[in-house]
């Protein structure tokens, strides 16, 4: 939107232009969402420290797993002394949600001629924060520069939080409860407001409201599968409501 000259879909002449968009994506590292995510990683580092994970392992985990809920589940499994297959299964269950998120993002990221390996590489950066940033801002980026831009967003967030984890390990000190509570409430508040703001259609807001109500309910009924079941049931219901009301409006 800010860029006056529209880029061609795929052209080697625009390598410099793409790099400029990469840097612009990288700049998302100084944003409110990035700050909030960093505070969430303070909490994660504290948890990892408590579980006896070494600094190198915690930083490695941050870079290679990236999604915060998956890492929290992984550490939970390690602390519980779970065997490798059980731990992998638990983490896989907590991460099924990444598939629909990537499916929703890919059509907006790719241009004509975008190579598949680029998308595979970029998909590693998909987690709630970068996904929300992307869904909110990707349409302001020219089509041909979107992969470069998202590469900047994702890599800056990963690097920042590897640094945050390191800092917490090095400084490791007990935070007073109100400070810790104030930091930990930031993540749900940010997810809540940005998810509402970035909804593409009313179905998204209905799905969000249903997820908030059904999530705790299914956490009681099917603790192992609660996220997945909530997504399917809440998402399907929201979609059906969307179809029903859209059909009536069109009639």
């Amino acid at each position: 939107m800010a860029d006056p000259a529209p880029l061609p879909d795929h052209d080697d002449d625009i390598t410099g232009e793409r790099f400029r968009w990469y840097l612009r994506g990288f700049r998302e590292v100084v944003s409110l969402p990035a700050l909030i995510l960093a505070t969430s990683f303070v909490g994660f580092a504290a948890l990892a420290l408590e579980a006896g994970i070494t600094l190198a392992q915690a930083v490695f985990m941050t870079g290679i797993v990236w999604a915060l809920p998956a890492k929290v589940v992984l550490i939970g499994a390690i602390m519980a002394g779970n065997a490798l297959p059980a731990a992998a299964f638990a983490v896989a269950l907590s991460s099924v949600r990444l598939t629909p998120m990537v499916v929703a993002l890919v059509p907006e990221l790719k241009a004509r001629g975008t190579r598949n390996w680029v998308l595979l590489l970029l998909s590693h950066f998909v987690a709630v924060t970068s996904w929300v940033i992307a869904m909110e801002k990707v349409r302001e980026v020219p089509r041909g520069a979107r992969t470069a831009w998202y590469g900047g967003v994702g890599s800056s967030l990963v690097i920042l939080n590897m640094g945050v984890v390191t800092a917490v390990y090095l400084l490791a000190q007990d935070m007073p409860a109100p400070v810790s509570a104030a930091l930990l409430i930031l993540t749900p508040m940010y997810f809540l407001t940005s998810l509402w703001g970035s909804a593409r259609e009313r179905a998204g807001r209905v799905a969000m409201a249903l997820g908030l109500v059904l999530g705790p309910l299914f956490a009681l009924l099917t603790p192992e599968f609660s996220l997945l079941v909530t997504g399917l049931v809440g998402g399907t219901a929201a979609y059906l409501i969307h179809r029903f009301t859209a059909g009536r409006a069109g009639a």
């Binding site: 629909p100 799905a207 969000m208 998402g235 929201a238 969307h242």
Partner: peptide, 15 residues
């Protein structure tokens, strides 16, 4: 798909 992903993330918020 977006509705499913959104409901999933909302469940994460609730937890």
């Amino acid at each position: 798909v977006r509705a499913v992903a959104t409901a999933l993330v909302a469940a994460v918020i609730a937890s």
